[in-house]
Structures are given as C-alpha cells and as structure tokens.
Simulated scan of single mutants.
Amino acid sequence: MKTIKIISAIALTAILGFTSCQSEENSQVGTNPNANSSTSPTASNYQRATMNDGSDDDFLDGNACTELLFPLTANVNGQQITLLSKLDFTAVLNIMGQFNNDSDAVTFSFPIRVRTSAYTDVTINSQSAFNTLKQECETAESQGKDAISCVDIQFPVTMLTYSVSLEQTGSVVIQSEKQLYTFMKNLQDDELFAVNYPISVTLSNGTTVQIKSDAEFQNAISECVQFEDEKDAAEDTAEEVEAILSGTKFKVETFVVAGANTANDYANWSIEFKNDLKVVAKNVVNSALGEVNGTYTVSSETEAFVNINFASNTTVSALSNNWVISTYSNTLITLKSKTDASVTLALKKI
C-alpha cells in the first residue's frame, strides 16, 4: 500500500539510550501475565507504527522506505530543480501537473542522502545503488515486513518492563516515535514489556481515539489500514480514469436528472477532455454555435471524482458537477453527483 513504510535492510547505526526506573507507586508493579515478548504481535505493531515515515516524497523517489534529505538536485521532466526543503515540493508537483497524459520522469544528481525507516542516514552515490535500495524496499514489503504510517501515537507513553518470570523490573517513559521504535528494536529475548494504558492515537482519517489495551491498538491499526486501502484503491481508479479521459472525445450517453434522461439535449455535442485539464464542448452539427470551454480535474479521497466545470448560462453548463466515478471501462464512464446520487451521467467514447 502507498502510505506504508518498511524496515530497510540498511542497519541501524544510532541507538538512543533509555533510563529505566523502578516505581513502587505504579499500579502495575508486580507480576503481569499479559507482558509481551520481542516477537509478540504487540511488539511488531508498535515497531511498525513508529518507523521513520518516508512516504511524503514518494512522488519523487517512489520509495516509501526512505525519506529524501535536503538539499538535493533533481531533473523533473527535463527541468532541473534544486530542493532546499519540503516547501520546494510544490514546484516539482507543478512541473508534473502541466500535462496529465505524460509519464513523469525524475532523475537525481548523485550523491544524495536519505533517511531509512530505521532512522539511519545513508548517502547514495549512484542510480544503481538507488535502484538497489528501492528493490530492497519492494522485497521487504512483499515479505510482509512493512510498517504502518496511518496511526500517530500521542506521547509520552510509558512502557513497563518485566523479566521472563513476569516480575516488573522497571519502567521507561517514551517521548517520540524514534525512541519507541528503538525500544522495540532493542528488546532482548529475556525481556518482556507491557504498555501502560490508556494511550491516545490519531488515525489517518483524522479521528483521535483512546486505546486501553493491546487488542484495541490492533483494532485501531486494522481500521486505519482499511481506510488507507480504500484511499489507495480510489487513487488507482482516479489515475486510470484520468488516462481514459485525457485527449479523448466523448458523448453524453445518459444524463438523468429528477428521474428523467435528458441525454437528447446533448445529442449534437461532443465533450473533449484535453491533456492540460481543459474540457471543450463542441456542437458537431451546427459549428456556428462555436465551442464552450471549461476545466476538469480528477481526484480521490476514499472515492474517485471527476470535477467538470463549464461557464454558467451555456448549453452544457448543467454538466458541471463534482462527479463520483461509479464504473468505468475504456469506452464508457458512469458518474453520479457527489451531493445527489440520483443525478447520474454516462460518457461514451466517440
């Protein structure tokens, strides 16, 4: 999935230290039959949820395992650009967004520096080394060694530590994702832990929830992963539909408003979606009626959308809407209004 991070094969070189302290006042001092080992699902969940997130720059490097470090220079669709911070991402996206029927090409001026999922900073000296790192990422993901970036844990979080005999040995107050990742990564076979619940987490859908157990944390992960999967599927749909629309002429096959099919009102009109996000309606019978120009965008959330915008008071202005993509093929796209599902539009390729 596109918003997940994975453990890089590059070894962790910077280890944070922690201070453990015995707390006789803690309500969980003593034995704890629910303590977790380093190989437990709970340990895996917390480690995966706290890896370094390298997904923000995936449009540039195509690698969710690595975070690009600044400064760096890249050639984007033939244009050289130097990036000093994430603020320069906008300039890259503007170049990529000039046309929607081209294949965006990005090459870096090596060496570049990246930060891995394990918080290790690495210098990449060549395209081949860059490709190897990307392949390692894909291999690890296929093996189920992926990390989860759709849960943000609110810190501080306290971890209670136990011996294998389930006697508490101390507690550790964790202040950041990096510290929690390192704590989980460095657990030894003879060390157990328990999370001092409750804790708060924020999911990628914007919901903040209080977690009171390991099981509830697993449920929160399952919920947000499902949400991310829906977003990924919608993004794939948007990309495919945009490719079908771009540079192609369509006719109105059906246009149902208030239960009536008004497609005949547009029988003499073609709708052409240009590759620069312009849309042009032409009367193919009476050229004297000229053209009606508009714009369109294809986007996604947990559904995919086609937004069509023609000027008001034109023959085709009623087609303006934020449409939800219902079904699509290479020749037919069916849409429904985002605000009124009873209003539907079907566009058939000419």
Rank of each mutant, 00 (worst) to 15 (best):
S20N: 01
I15V: 09
P198D: 08
V241Q: 02
N101P: 03
F155C: 07
I10F: 11
S165P: 04
S163F: 10
V157C: 05
Q28L: 13
E230A: 10
L93K: 15
T314I: 00
A35P: 02
S312C: 02
F183Y: 12
N131G: 05
A49G: 02
D102E: 14
G17R: 01
A263G: 08
S38R: 15
L12F: 03
T50N: 04
D236T: 13
Q188H: 07
E216S: 07
D58I: 14
V122Y: 12
F250D: 02
F310Q: 09
C224M: 06
D214A: 03
S23R: 12
N313Y: 07
T202S: 12
L166G: 04
E167H: 13
D121L: 06
F250W: 08
D214T: 00
I199Y: 04
G290P: 10
I211M: 06
Q47M: 15
P71S: 00
V122M: 05
E240C: 05
F183G: 04
K5P: 05
N77M: 05
V241N: 03
S37T: 14
W269T: 13
T132F: 10
V76E: 00
K145M: 11
G259D: 00
N330V: 09
Q188E: 14
I95E: 12
P111Q: 08
S299M: 09
T90I: 09
A64N: 14
V122A: 00
K2W: 08
A11Y: 07
T13L: 06
N313H: 07
I271Q: 04
L277W: 14
S213E: 02
N322H: 06
T254E: 14
S326H: 07
I4H: 12
S38E: 12
L245Q: 02
S171V: 09
P33G: 00
N186Y: 14
I4Q: 14
A194R: 11
P156H: 03
T19K: 12
Q79F: 00
